[in-house]
Design a protein around this nucleic acid. Structure first.
Lengths: 215, 215
DNA sequence: GTCTATAGCGAGATAGAC
DNA sequence: GTCTATCTCGCTATAGAC
């Protein structure tokens, strides 16, 4: 959102956004200080204010960027596991595990998502809408399209792809997200796999095609 | 957790915890000021520090209390809707709707839960454990016991009651919690009912007994 | 002309003395 | 219940260095 102008070397700007991402992710919006971000970026505080009008602008800028990056990463994971899927259970479980890792791994995008969720009451409605559209909503639409394609191929018995995508995410991801407080606390890999497997089993009982019948 | 001592009139203490609950819930931990809490309680700041050693102690104290109260309230809702249940779908949907209201209604316990989730990285592990035990974990165990009893009565076909309770919560509650950012943003009542109904339908496909077969 | 370094302002916080 | 010491914050201003 609205930088201060075109001023400044682009490599400095990149260092600032990188630093802001890690510091906001680690400390949250209120605790993070512009001093700490400048120090982490290895630039002077004045340079930070040369590139971004104020703290809020910087935060929303990196939050939007992080959401878009995560959406892209999740799209890659879907392509890898779902597009050429043969065994529904295996493909879905593998995707669920890798998604949980991608979103919740320490120091990654999940930390900024947690900061956004903590600040939601203080974020302008239109900016929050933009974040949702670049992040969670977009990823959810991607997944729904993939599920519709899988139904086309007879691998899932999905009638409402949006609903199926929502329920898949709830059953295989949100349990882990809640346990780890969106990545703030570590969750054992085998726990992630256990939840993913149980979630996929349940999902297939709701939306599984004949080829994916569950005992 | 560890107050400063037995000093002070109990009605003042109650006013302080009430005020702290609303202010922490409204502003979050970092933004909330001890001045604002003292003003909201109608006492002097000195009185606040007479009852609670510092800001963190006060916060954790009211967070624990709120979690326990919410667990009790949820237990009442379960008793009301599940113990004498006749129609599984109706009972489960009604419970899901009232639970979402109880947890996420503006200014209620959900606000403090949101504050806790935002501060999770800065909360001592043992205190966080205590909060989980008094709140979410206890409520989840209650629900599992109820589900086991319903299976006993033939109203559900549940084999793993803990898993069923977890999946019920995911399917009927977490979608609403996520949409409203744990109560920070309003969600229309009909949206809550729609999600609850779809979640219960899915749940009954996984765990429904013969009496609750879904088309 | 963009950067660094530093100093400082005004506001608001915790915490505690009186 | 007031009042204040001390700290840190976001942000600005003033220097000079590459």
């Amino acid at each position: 959102m609205a930088t201060t102008g075109g001023a400044g070397r682009p490599e400095k700007r990149k260092a600032i956004t990188r630093a802001a991402t890690t510091v906001f992710g680690r400390e949250g919006y209120v605790r993070a200080s512009m001093d700490a971000i400048a120090a982490e970026a290895g630039v002077s505080k004045r340079t930070v204010y040369n590139h971004f009008a104020d703290k809020e602008t910087l935060f929303l800028s990196v939050a939007l960027r992080s959401a878009a990056e995560l959406t892209e990463r999740l799209g890659e994971l879907m392509a890898k596991h779902l597009d050429r899927m043969v065994d529904p259970r295996r493909g879905l479980v593998d995707f669920a595990v890798e998604r949980a890792d991608a979103v919740l791994a320490a120091g990654e995008h999940g930390a900024l998502g947690r900061a956004i969720r903590a600040e939601v009451a203080n974020i302008p409605a239109d900016v929050l809408e933009a974040w949702l559209e670049a992040g969670p909503a977009a990823a959810q639409r991607d997944l729904a399209e993939r599920f519709a394609a899988l139904a086309e191929r007879g691998l899932l018995a999905v009638v409402d792809a949006e609903l199926a995508a929502e329920q898949f995410t709830l059953l295989t991801f949100h349990g882990v997200a809640e346990r780890s407080f969106w990545g703030a606390l570590p969750v054992a890999g085998e726990e992630v796999e256990r939840i993913a497997a149980a979630g996929v089993d349940a999902f297939l009982r709701i939306h599984g095609g004949p080829a994916a019948a569950v005992k």
